[in-house]
Simulated assay, not measured.
Amino acid sequence: MSDSCQSSESEILYLMEQIRHLREEVERLKREREDLIIALSTTAEHGDCIEAQLQEANQQLKVEVEVRRRTEMTLQTLMEAISKRKADLEIVVQTIMEHGDIMDTQWALKLSEMNKIASMDGLTQIPNRRRFDEHLAHQWKQMTRERSPICLILFDIDLFKQYNDTYGHLAGDDCLKQVAQVLNGCVHRPSDLTARYGGEEFAAILPQTSLEGAMEVAQRVQTEIANLKILHEKSSVSNYLTLSIGIASSIPTPEQSFSKLLDEADQYLYLAKQQGRDRIIFSSKKALRQ
């Protein structure tokens, strides 16, 4: 009887132990169930957000694909245009190579023509002040090397303002043209140059020319102007157009500048006008009058 009681007590203890394990298992399962419920709830709560993000990413990807497609099309078009332009340029280059000599000649002629235009006075069609300065500087250096004389003649139309006021600017322009033609006709050598010096003033550069030779040129110009008999009623000098003339002569040296020759010719021209106009001054004491 005692053994049966002990056996029953052991069974009861075993069962109670089993029940305790079962309860613990149940509690564990409950906790897992609660965790799953929480996880499912969280997934449900954020599912819409995740889906929206996925849709946005998908849409962005579609946009990028479309942009890439358009870029590729643009690049293709550009490559075709470049290819065509390259072909056109090759044709141009080929043409230039085939006709290079002709084009070089044409450009050289155009450049020469433009330089000529830039060096000419538009009204009188003789060299302008720019060309005068260039030529005088060049000839001064040349005469310095050669130790040869150079002469400069400055011409001024007497009382030209009164002429313009009396006969008008069109007549004044025609008068300037006639004086320029006379100067050109009196100076012949290739190294000589006549130019419009400014306004109603003209100049002649005479390299390798003595003072006597320059005086002959000045007298010839004065005579030709007198022969034109251009009426000038308001002149206090003559009834016809006259010129005042100053001549300077020098044998250049490396220490000198052509500006000294210019200053001297200008001084003599001033003296010619101061002493009554219509005359040639070639030194402070010597004068010739037509």
Results as ranks from 00 to 15, higher is better:
S4N: 10
S7R: 04
S8L: 14
E9S: 02
E11H: 07
I12R: 00
L15I: 08
L15D: 02
M16V: 04
E17G: 15
V26Y: 12
R28C: 11
K30P: 02
E32V: 14
R33D: 13
R33E: 15
D35G: 04
S41P: 06
T42H: 10
A44R: 15
H46K: 15
G47K: 09
G47A: 13
E51M: 11
E51L: 12
Q53E: 08
Q60G: 06
L61H: 15
K62D: 12
E64N: 14
V65C: 08
V65Q: 13
V67G: 06
R70I: 13
T71Q: 15
T71D: 11
E72S: 14
Q76T: 12
Q76N: 14
M79P: 00
A81T: 10
I82G: 05
K84F: 04
R85H: 08
L89A: 11
I91N: 08
V92W: 03
T95M: 06
I102K: 13
D104C: 11
D104T: 10
A108D: 11
L111P: 00
N115H: 10
S119F: 00
M120C: 05
D121K: 01
G122Q: 09
G122C: 06
T124G: 04
Q125L: 10
N128I: 04
N128W: 03
R130A: 09
R131H: 10
F132D: 01
F132H: 06
F132V: 02
A137M: 09
W140Q: 03
W140G: 01
K141G: 04
M143L: 08
R145G: 02
I150K: 01
L152S: 03
I153R: 01
L154C: 06
D156K: 03
I157E: 01
L159W: 05
F160L: 12
Y163T: 09
N164P: 08
D165C: 11
D165Q: 11
G172Y: 00
L176R: 00
Q181A: 10
Q181C: 03
V182C: 05
N184P: 00
N184G: 13
G185V: 02
H188V: 13
P190Y: 04
T194K: 01
T194D: 04
A195H: 02
E200K: 08
E201Y: 10
F202N: 00
I205C: 05
L206D: 05
Q208L: 07
T209M: 05
T209A: 09
L211C: 11
M215E: 10
A218F: 04
Q219I: 09
T223F: 08
I225T: 01
N227S: 15
K234G: 02
K234F: 02
V237L: 07
N239Q: 13
G246F: 02
I247D: 02
A248K: 00
S249D: 07
S249V: 02
I251K: 06
Q256G: 06
L261S: 04
G276A: 09
G276W: 08
G276D: 10
R277Y: 08
R277K: 14
D278M: 05
I280Y: 04
S284K: 14
